[in-house]
């Protein structure tokens, strides 16, 4: 115990100051080291090669994650734009099919329009009169037209009138696209009713012509007529869409 007390006994030689300074330095370094180890965690006390390894791992991981981000965002973009574009394209294609179908006569059409009933007791109304009527209706903005008549078997038959429709005179009446029809005829027309009716009524027009042949043309306006007769779609033999 006496030696320990001698160690702790105050002395004031120069070397004692040095010892005290060294011990103070040790305490200082100890505290600083403990403090920095606690506060900075693993990285500051890690050695250079460990740090390099950690950095490598982090780089690899961030590379992998970046690739993942890139592929996922590409997928996302493909899905959003792809599905959006294809949906829009599909909708547009459907719309065009419907519109063209009305023109080509492959889909039924309904809307405001007129019914034009033409009687022909003397069998004098020829195909040319009906063709004039049809042209008049087209000029008046008819969008969908069907022509009804009594077929050879006695039933009322409707034929869709499209661009290629041909009207040919027949013994008992007319032939429309290969279908024989007899009076009374009836045009069902989708379009502006008043314009269509006015077109029928012009002097020297359809109504007058039919009357001259001993028949009668009756125009009935309607807010809703239905052109239900369809025409099979025949693919063109020579023409190809560009």
């Amino acid at each position: 115990m006496s030696s320990l007390s001698r160690l702790l006994r105050p002395r004031a030689r120069r070397v004692d100051v040095l010892v005290a300074a060294l011990l103070a330095l040790l305490g200082f370094a100890l505290a600083v080291q403990v403090r920095s180890t606690q506060s900075d965690g693993l990285l500051t006390s890690a050695r250079q090669e460990d740090l390099v390894q950690i950095l490598d791992e982090l780089n690899n991981r961030s590379d992998r994650l970046r690739q993942e981000v890139a592929s996922l965002s590409a997928t996302k973009q493909r899905l959003t734009t792809g599905s959006g574009a294809s949906t829009a394209a599909l909708a547009e294609a459907r719309r065009r099919t419907q519109l063209l179908g009305v023109l080509a006569g492959t889909v039924a059409a309904t809307g405001p329009g007129v019914l034009v009933r033409i009687t022909d007791p003397k069998t004098q109304v020829s195909a040319s009169v009906l063709l004039d009527a049809l042209e008049e209706l087209r000029n008046a903005g008819a969008e969908a037209v069907q022509l009804e008549g009594t077929a050879s078997d006695g039933r009322v038959t409707a034929v869709r009138v499209v661009a290629q429709t041909a009207l040919v005179d027949d013994r008992a009446g007319i032939v429309v696209d290969g279908v024989s029809l007899a009076a009374p005829y009836r045009f069902t027309v989708v379009g502006d009713p008043s314009t269509l009716a006015g077109a029928m009524a012009i002097p020297g027009g359809v109504e007058d012509a039919v009357r001259q042949q001993g028949g009668a043309a009756e125009v009935i306006r309607s807010q809703r007529v239905r052109v239900g007769a369809l025409r099979p779609l025949t693919p063109p033999r020579y023409a190809r869409p560009e």
Binding site: R9, R11, A20, G27, A29, S36, T44
Partner: peptide, 28 residues
Amino acid sequence: MIPAVALVMGVVLGLVLHPTVPAGLQPY
């Protein structure tokens, strides 16, 4: 006695001043 006091003083100084260890000294 003085060395022990000096040691305690050093610890207190280190805790109070809270210096950062220079990067070059950190491994040593």
